[in-house]
Design a protein around this nucleic acid. Structure first.
Lengths: 237, 237
DNA sequence: CGTCGTGTTGATTGGTCTCAACCCGTGTGG
DNA sequence: CCACACGGGTTGAGACCAATCAACACGACG
C-alpha cells in the first residue's frame, strides 16, 4: 500500500508534488500521465491585489490568495457574486461570455493551463468530469445561500454570516475551531458590494458586533471571533 | 439527410418521439439505444399545483408547468432561489442533501427516471456530461443575476426584471417578441419571496407599473407587457 | 350567508441610505 | 522635517424606501 503510493509519487511531476491544488483543485483526480501532460502546458504566476484576471481560455488553480467575482449594473452599482479561495479553481467551461469580472483581492498565486487540455481529458476521465460538475454545483449552492441572505436577512445577520464564511474559507482548519482569528481580505467597500449594503452600514454593524463583545477588531482588517457559537446565533439561519 | 433522420426516428421509443424534453431536457443528446433503455425505466406523471417534489434519487424532465425552489431560514423567512420551466430538467447529481425544497407552482407534467442510469450513461457519453455541466452553469448564471438584483436593485426594478424573466421563460417564443401577454404562475406571496420584498410592496409596485402604462393586469394574474423596450428600460441593468 | 384565501390600498414606522464631518495612516513635495 | 492631500474607515443627523399594521374588496366555497 505504502509501496504503491510511493510508486505513484515517483511519476508525479516535481512541481506538482507539494502542490495544494491536488487537494482542492482539479489535479487530484488526474492520473500521473495526465498530470505530466498538464504540467508541461501549465505556468505559474503571481498577481498583486487589485489585478483583474481576464477571462481568456484558461483554467487556473488558485494556489494562494482570494479572488472576487463581480457583476455590474450599467449605472455603476456593483454586486460581488462569488469568491475563490485557495485551494480552489477558476475558469469557465464552454465560455458563453458572461458579464462577470474576476479580480484579485489579495496577492494571488495561480497555476494556469489551456482549457482545451482539461476539456479533452474530461471526456475520457469521468472522475474529472464529476469534479467539474461538483464544483459548479457547489458554486450554485453558495450562490443560493447568498440569495437567501441578500433577500431575507437583516444587515447585522448578513455581517455575521459573512464573517463566518470568510473565516472558514480563509483557513479550512477554522471550520471546526470554536474561536477564530483572521485578516479580512476585503475592504469595507467590497463587503458592502457583497452584502448589498453601503460602506456606512457595514462599518456601523461591525462596530455594533464589536461593542456587543462578539468580535474584536484590530487594525481595521484583523478580526477575532471570540465564540463561533455566538456568531452562528446571529446568522439568522 | 432526411432519410437518415427518418432512420433514426424509427429507433426512437414511441413516447419520446413527440417529447418536448428532447429539445431542452436531457434526452436530446442520447443515442437511440440509450433513449430506449431510459424510456424503459422512465415514468410519466402529473402533479397538481402546490405539490412538493421530494428529492428522491430521480431526475425528471419537466414536460409542462413551473416549479419553484425554495430555501428557508429557521424562523420561517423564505427565499425562492430558482425556477424550472418546461422543457427543462430537475434533479441533483451526487446529492449532498441540500436544504432546498422543490414545489410545483402550476400543474406539472414530469418524466422521471433513476439518477443512476443517467450518471452511468454520462460516464461514457461526454455529450451528456456536457449537458449536465452546462445546465448547472446556466443555473449558476441565473442565481448570480438574481443575487445582483436582490442586492442592488430597487423594488420597482426587481418587479420589471421579474416580469420580463417570467414572460421569456413561460414561452420561449416571447424572447424575440416586442409585446407579450401571459399568466403569472406565482401568487403575490411567491413573487415577494423571490424578490426579497413583502406582498404589499409587490402589489404596490405592480399597481405603479400599471398606472404608468407599462403593463396591463387582468384577473390579478394575467399580465400584458405593452412594450418590452419600456420594461427593459426599467430593469436597471 | 359567513368564512377563508388572495390581493389592494392607506397610514405609520423603522431600517438602511444619504450627506456630511471627522479620524488616522501613508505618501509626497517643498 | 513639516504641510498637505489622499484613501480608507468611523460616526452622526436626517431623509427615504420598503416594512408593518390595518382596513377593505372580491371570488370561491360550504
Amino acid at each position: 500500500m505504502t509501496a504503491r503510493l510511493d510508486a505513484q509519487q515517483a511519476d508525479i511531476p516535481a512541481i506538482c508534488k507539494s502542490c495544494e491544488a491536488r487537494r482542492g483543485g482539479l489535479c487530484g483526480v488526474l492520473k500521473a500521465g495526465q498530470l505530466t501532460e498538464l504540467a508541461r502546458a501549465s505556468s505559474r504566476h503571481e498577481v498583486l491585489a487589485g489585478t483583474e484576471l481576464p477571462d481568456d481560455g484558461t483554467y487556473s488553480n488558485v494556489l494562494a490568495g482570494v479572488i472576487k467575482l463581480t457583476r455590474n449594473l450599467s449605472d455603476g452599482r456593483q454586486q460581488i457574486v462569488g469568491f475563490h479561495f485557495a485551494p480552489d479553481f477558476l475558469g469557465r467551461p464552454f465560455e458563453p461570455k458572461r458579464p462577470i469580472k474576476a479580480e484579485a483581492l489579495t496577492k494571488v498565486a495561480l497555476c494556469s493551463f489551456p482549457r482545451t487540455i482539461i476539456d479533452r481529458m474530461a471526456d475520457d476521465t469521468p472522475e474529472l468530469g464529476h469534479r467539474l460538475l461538483n464544483h459548479a454545483l457547489s458554486e450554485l449552492d453558495e450562490a443560493r445561500d447568498w440569495m437567501t441572505a441578500l433577500g431575507r436577512k437583516t444587515a447585522s445577520e448578513k455581517l455575521a454570516s459573512f464573517l463566518l464564511m470568510i473565516a472558514r474559507n480563509i483557513d479550512p482548519a477554522n471550520r471546526s475551531a470554536s474561536s477564530i482569528s483572521f485578516d479580512l481580505p476585503l475592504s469595507r467597500s467590497d463587503i458592502a458590494d457583497f452584502l448589498g449594503l453601503t460602506i456606512e452600514t457595514v462599518s456601523r454593524e461591525l462596530s455594533r458586533l464589536r461593542s456587543d463583545g462578539v468580535i474584536r477588531i484590530a487594525n481595521k482588517r484583523h478580526i477575532s471571533l471570540e465564540s463561533t457559537g455566538q456568531i452562528e446565533g446571529r446568522c439568522g439561519d
